[in-house]
Amino acid sequence: MTATFPARALRALTLVLTAGAAGLALADDDENKRLNINHPEYRSECGSCHIAFPPALLGAESWRAMMAGLDKHFGSDASLDAETSAVITKFLVANAARRDTAGSDGRPQLRISDTPWFRKEHRDGHDGITPGIFRSAAVKSAANCAACHRNAAEGDFSERDIRIPKNGARS
């Protein structure tokens, strides 16, 4: 018994530390959460040309407008059959941001990168973001989340997994 005591104490200490870290993570910004993209049809249908963006990044009205205009989707035809479209819309709306994302004209915003939240979190100088980085060869577009958020395709936007490419090369 005496031999197991230190081991048990160590285990208890580890538990306390892990719980503390988890508490900190929860208390941190919203974006450190793992965002729900857990829907096979959404992931396959909306994750072909770009990653499956987390539904929580736009309000419900934005998603409804997006899904109603898939034939003209940011310069591409992304049409879906009515049944698939309805199933995916339901998932998006159910997991949408609680606050609406409307532009200054009152219309629902369609680009995640136009929302005030995105612009604030991705402003020049914030967390190592340099001017022009979004148009660099390594990033190409603000839609390319995975250029810096390495696990974005899995809905994981944890800050510890951010690697901003330097001089156009991926680090």
């Binding site: 072909s48 040309c49 770009h50 990653i51 940011f74 310069g75 591409s76 190409k140 577009s141 839609a143 390319n144």
Partner: peptide
């Protein structure tokens, strides 16, 4: 290949 606008 590579998507012309998203790079995916």
């Amino acid at each position: 290949g590579k998507h012309a606008s998203t790079g995916k």
